[in-house]
Amino acid sequence: MVVRRRTRTRGKGRSSVHEKPLTNSVHVVQGERVHMPVEVRAATGVTAQFLVPAGPARDTLAAAGLAPVTPVPGRVPATLGFVHYLDGDLGEYHEFLVALMCRQPGVRGSTGVFIHWLPVDQTFTCEAGQNIWGFPKEISTIDVSTRGKRTRCEVRLEDRAVVAMEFGRGVPAPSAMGAMTLDAYTHRDGVLRRTPWTMRAGGTRMRPGGARVELGDHPISDDLRRLGFPRDALFTNHIGELTMRFADATPISSRS
């Protein structure tokens, strides 16, 4: 069965009609019904890849019941990124991402990414992310500006600078064929969850380096320092056309 839903793009006063399969999984957020899976029909984003020391990352992941992935001995791949969601079931909003590559100890084929911090600038997606998937979302100020070929994203909490990244424009790169699905792990209220996260990217541009990080004076800034994020990225990926799908989260384990 297919139900025709009216999805509002929050914050801009626009609305559009989309066809979406009716499933048994429905969540209520701020009085609105959110049908699974959640679709993102249009977004743009930038991701910067880093290698951080394994020790601090191992401590962070162990608290959630996970282990680091170390393709380079003593180093864990980590991502800082920015996404502008333009059209999706949760509305229009900006988001900043901090993620570590991880796996479930002793579980073959469980490699994924642990979402360590995920600030957003709209309340609906914040509440939905926390309650449906256990994402570590919180309301923040996210300012994005572009000058020439460089884009700057600044994140502030409680009127204090947390992190800023400046991205350089890359060169056109072949887009991946088809969709890519990976597991996103979250840990909230003592529960470890796994969420299948499917992405399809187009209009990509890549370059070595390409991003520079500045940390502020907030306690979260100190946490990013503790994780050992270097000032400069290994490489940066600009995505001009991004679609995503988030399935329901599966609880894996609980710990107090």
Rank of each mutant, 00 (worst) to 15 (best):
R4C: 02
R5L: 07
G11R: 08
G13Y: 05
S15H: 10
H18T: 12
L22Q: 12
V26G: 12
V28T: 15
P37R: 01
V38I: 15
V38W: 07
T44C: 08
F50N: 03
F50D: 10
F50P: 08
A54D: 03
P56C: 06
P68N: 10
T70N: 08
P71T: 08
P73S: 15
G74W: 02
P77E: 06
G81R: 03
V83N: 10
H84L: 11
H84R: 15
G88H: 07
L97Y: 13
G106Q: 13
G112T: 02
W117H: 08
P119S: 04
D121P: 03
Q122N: 09
I132K: 01
I132A: 03
G134F: 07
P136N: 05
I139M: 13
V144D: 08
S145M: 05
T146L: 11
T146H: 04
R147A: 15
G148R: 05
R150D: 02
R150L: 02
V155K: 02
D159C: 08
A164P: 09
A164V: 09
A179N: 08
L182K: 09
L182V: 13
A184Y: 11
D189N: 14
G190S: 00
L192I: 09
R193E: 00
R193I: 11
A201P: 00
A201M: 14
G202P: 01
G202M: 03
M206G: 04
R207Q: 13
P208K: 03
G209Y: 04
A211S: 11
R212G: 04
E214K: 09
E214A: 14
L215V: 02
D222N: 11
R226K: 10
L227N: 01
P230A: 06
R231N: 00
I239H: 06
E241I: 12
T243E: 13
A247F: 06
T250I: 12
S253K: 12
S253N: 04
R255E: 12
